[in-house]
């Protein structure tokens, strides 16, 4: 539970840190729109190169970005195979008859067990998974013994491969861009930027200031509450509530022993916070000034020009 981190801001001093959060949010929207305008592989590769160059300019460690990609790795793999299986246009590259029978089913079970064991021991990183896929392919295609239960055609088309690579690269770029935003912007700055950008919504009755306040309080308190949850868990484990064992009835009791103190502490905290805010003269709905207001600087103009330029380039390519 300790590993859940809301907002992945890492202190630093590159180009992106100097930008106004409003600029970053707008620029990322603009860049994403441009990205979706791109149609061919070459254009996308150019975009990828530009994304990498941006990272280098911002002196952001690529390792960190790749680390940030880890949680959505499953999504990437899923997207990849989804495209390969269901896009059936272009030249046929591979046509393989696959059959499920006693032998291949057994081999699949064996391969799955092997893969899970390797994954449990955390050996070889992604390698066991690739080997597993290879084994699946081989056993489905070439192993047959006894009666065949079902058989099907495994087909890969040229366009399918191209599209899957295309979509995955596009996703990669989008995630890289948003990681740059969250990595280089403090959560508080991010909400302040949102608040200012959403100001115009006041006309349709949405108060962006209150919205921003709610978000910043949540951001501020989520780590605190998690920390507290961790302490409660330890305190109850100390009394024998080992959350990893026990029957269902005991489990329910253990969860209650966690939740009750959680709520009590959360309510207490919220009351304290409300008192602290009121004692500093906070009145809901009244306009407030700020000590640090956001100001656009030279860097922001540069960033605007660059992103507008890229959008223009993307549009131009599509038109001609």
């Amino acid at each position: 539970m300790k590993n859940i981190v809301i907002g992945q801001f890492v202190p630093g001093s590159g180009f992106f840190y100097k930008l106004d959060p409003r600029t970053k949010i707008m620029a990322i929207i603009v860049l994403m729109v441009s990205l979706f305008l791109l149609k061919t592989m070459t254009q996308l590769l150019v975009a990828l190169a530009i994304a990498v160059i941006l990272l280098l300019i911002g002196k952001l460690s690529i390792v960190r970005i790749v680390k940030g990609l880890k949680p959505i790795f499953v999504l990437l793999i899923f997207t990849f195979f989804f495209q390969i299986f269901f896009n059936k246009t272009g030249a046929l590259w591979l046509d393989q008859t696959m059959s499920l029978n006693w032998l291949s089913a057994g081999a699949i079970v064996l391969a799955t067990v092997l893969w899970r064991v390797l994954a449990r021991w955390k050996v070889g990183g992604i390698l066991p998974f690739l080997i597993y896929l290879g084994l699946l392919y081989v056993s489905l295609s070439y192993l047959s013994y006894g009666s065949t239960w079902t058989s099907f055609q495994f087909q890969i088309y040229e366009k399918g491969v191209e599209m899957s690579v295309f979509v995955v690269i596009r996703l990669l770029i989008i995630i890289t861009l948003s990681t740059v935003l969250t990595l280089t912007t403090k959560p508080t700055d991010l909400t302040m930027g949102m608040e200012k950008l959403l100001r115009p919504l006041k006309f349709i009755g949405i108060n962006s200031e209150e919205f921003a306040l709610i978000i910043s309080i949540s951001l501020r308190y989520i780590p605190t509450i998690l920390d507290e949850a961790n302490k409660i868990m330890l305190a109850q484990a100390s009394r024998g509530a080992d959350f990893s064992q026990g029957k269902l009835k005991e489990k329910v009791k253990q969860v209650i022993s966690l939740l009750v103190p959680m709520f009590i502490i959360a309510f207490k905290r919220s009351e304290e916070l409300a008192d602290a805010m009121e004692s500093r003269n906070f009145v809901p709905g009244k306009p407030r000034s700020r000590i640090y207001d956001l100001v656009f600087g030279m860097n922001d103009i540069v960033a605007f020009v660059i992103s507008a330029g890229l959008l223009a380039a993307a549009i131009t390519i599509q038109v001609i």
Partner: peptide, 27 residues
């Protein structure tokens, strides 16, 4: 944990039952 009993600093982290007796019986 039965061999070494550890009492945390803040009782708020562990009290949760509706009576003191039940809470003490939890361990």
């Amino acid at each position: 944990r039965k061999h070494v009993g550890l009492v945390f600093q803040f009782p708020e982290y562990q009290l949760f039952e509706e009576t003191v007796e039940k809470d003490i019986m939890f361990g």
